[in-house]
Amino acid sequence: MKIAVCVKHVPDATVHKRIDPTTKRLDRSGESALNPTDLNAVEEALRVKEAQGGEVVLVSLGPPKAADSLRKALAMGADRAVLVSDEAAAGSDLLGTSRVLAAVLEREAADLVLFGQASSDGDGAVLWAAVADRLRQPVISQVAALTFEGDEVHGKRQTEHGYDTISVPLPGVVAVSDAINEPRYPSLKGIMGAKTKPQETLSLAEIGLGSEAAGDASARTTVLDLGPPPSRGDQIKIEDDGTAAQKIVDLILEKRLL
């Protein structure tokens, strides 16, 4: 079983994310990390590999330093990583990103392509559907439990009306929910081993795409204006020093909520 996992390099959770008012793009200058919910996709791939044998390949579009994030997933146990990094790909929207990932995935010809739940910076939770359409493969999203039945996978997922189980023949695309598993921590051996695992960095040309196929040139959406969001009004923040419970009760009584 060959499994490709699409993972994104995003600003770290501790960074106050901002859009640069001049470029109108996300400021990616601070600390960054692997997108948290993509760890669930990596974990699921590793479990499948452990059960059935095979290979786990990471696929990402991002800046050169995304290679560091990919190394973390290699340390968890993935076998190799393919990063597409190209100035011309900066500013990609859903169309450019899906075109680039689909081009790499075509080359890799995996049996199963996994996605995480959502990127913490874009929060679209949609990319898989665009990639699957380009690959002309079946797709299922929000999968909270994944099982293999012959040459199909069965995914259980939540909808607005309960839980559905959907069968997808392979090759196919599956996006997982953050509840599907508990991602492992890399072992020391894994961290050491990751340094020598194959990591390719490719330009758009190297995956057979022209510079107009991604980035600003291919984007069909634009950011026109930025402003402050609606606010809830005054906020109180308390560090618990053992008295937080008392403060909460005082407040509930003061506001006559009981």
Binding site: L94, S98, T159
Partner: peptide
Amino acid sequence: ASVLAADVAAGLAARLEAGLNWD
């Protein structure tokens, strides 16, 4: 937005090479 509609919208965006703004 719904579990179904999000995937329809993004699939259609790729099919038509049309821009999708979400949320």
